[in-house]
Structures are given as structure tokens and as C-alpha cells.
């Protein structure tokens, strides 16, 4: 630490007691160091002299009304901003709400159509659904295809093929219209046939 640094710390009272004592000893023995210290003191003192803080009293007296005026303006602007934000938000909310309500109204009107059906119509629709008329048609097509396959590939009679198909549907006695010989033949052919 050079003397200049020590002077700054000494003036700021930041030297520890031992350093301070040593520095003060140096000061006694060095006129040059004393001059330097005085020079620093003078600079800081001059700066304090330049620190004008007593001027402009009228400015400070008038400042409060000026501030109040600005505050009122700011409050007005603030209120205006709030109104603008609130209106914008309201418009957005209304738009979203109207979209939502419009969609709901469509759904409700569709539901309304269903409600206009008579009880008989509703019963007829549910019966049709329960009977799966469309599926039955598909079953018929599938039956005929299987019949053809069984009669062509396994040389079954139409009746036998038909009874096998019925057994698939689970509502036919397996032995109905099928003698032991035929059953044995079916069994033999089925276990030796390569379908794929």
C-alpha cells in the first residue's frame, strides 16, 4: 500500500489502530506526507464548498402543487387505460361467449329434432337397432359363401353344410341331420385339409 492509498484510508478512518499509529508516526517524520495529506483534505473540503443545497426555495414550494397536478393527470390517464382495457376484455369475453352460445344452440336444436319424434317412431328405431337388420343381411351373405366353400371343397351336401353353419351360430343340435358316417368323414377331412 503506497502513501496515497494510506492517506485516503486514513481520512476515511479505515486504517486499523496499528496502521493508524504507524501512519501518524510517518506523518510526524515526513513533511512531504503531511503536505500530501493536506492536499487531499483541501480537495475534499473544496468539494464540500461546491455542494450548494440551499438554492431554489421557490422551486420546492411550488413543487407539491406541480406534483399534484401531474398526479391528477396520471390518474386520469390511468382511469382511461383501465376503461380501454376493461372494454377490450369485455368485447373479447362477449365474442367468446357468443361463439360458445351459438354452438350450444345448434346442439340444442339438434336435440330438439330428436325430441320431436313420437314414441312409436323411437320404439321402431330402437327395435331396428336391436335386431341389427343390416348385420343379418351380412350374415346371410356370409352363410352363402360358407355353404359354397364347404360343398365345393369338402363335397358336403347342401343340407350338411347348412347344418354345420347353423352349428356355428350355436342354435342347432350338432347331431341333427348328420349320421355317424358323415360326422366321421367331416372329422377326417377337416384334420387332413390344408386350408391355407
Amino acid at each position: 500500500m503506497n502513501n496515497q492509498d494510506k492517506i485516503i484510508l486514513y481520512l476515511d478512518n479505515l486504517l486499523d489502530p496499528r496502521e493508524k499509529e504507524k501512519f501518524e508516526e510517518d506523518l510526524k517524520n515526513s513533511p512531504e506526507l503531511r503536505l500530501k495529506l493536506e492536499s487531499y483534505k483541501k480537495v475534499l473540503e473544496n468539494l464540500k464548498q461546491m455542494n450548494i443545497q440551499s438554492a431554489g426555495k421557490s422551486y420546492f414550494i411550488n413543487n407539491i402543487p406541480v406534483f399534484r397536478e401531474r398526479l391528477e393527470k396520471k390518474k386520469k390517464v390511468w382511469v382511461q387505460k383501465k376503461i380501454i382495457y376493461a372494454s377490450s376484455s369485455l368485447v373479447i369475453v362477449l365474442l367468446v361467449l357468443s361463439l360458445f352460445l351459438f354452438r350450444n344452440a345448434e346442439t340444442i336444436s339438434n336435440n330438439g329434432k330428436n325430441l320431436e319424434l313420437t314414441q312409436d317412431q323411437i320404439k321402431s328405431l330402437t327395435d331396428s337397432y336391436a335386431n341389427l337388420e343390416i348385420d343379418s343381411a351380412l350374415y346371410n351373405v356370409a352363410d352363402s359363401v360358407w355353404n359354397e366353400l364347404l360343398s365345393d371343397e369338402l363335397n358336403f351336401s347342401y343340407e350338411t353344410a347348412d347344418s354345420i353353419l347353423h352349428s356355428f351360430n350355436g342354435n342347432v343340435d350338432y347331431n341333427e341331420g348328420l349320421n355317424d358316417e358323415e360326422a366321421s368323414l367331416i372329422y377326417d377331412r377337416l384334420i387332413t385339409k390344408e386350408f391355407f
Binding site: 496515497q4 492509498d5 485516503i8 484510508l9 481520512l11 476515511d12 492536499s39 487531499y40 480537495v43 475534499l44 468539494l47
Partner: peptide, 10 residues
């Protein structure tokens, strides 16, 4: 900060 400020001002 103060130390450097005083040094520069001086």
C-alpha cells in the same frame, strides 16, 4: 468504490 472515487477526484 469510495476509495477509487476519492483517488480519481483528487
Amino acid at each position: 468504490n469510495y476509495f477509487h472515487a476519492v483517488k480519481k477526484i483528487y
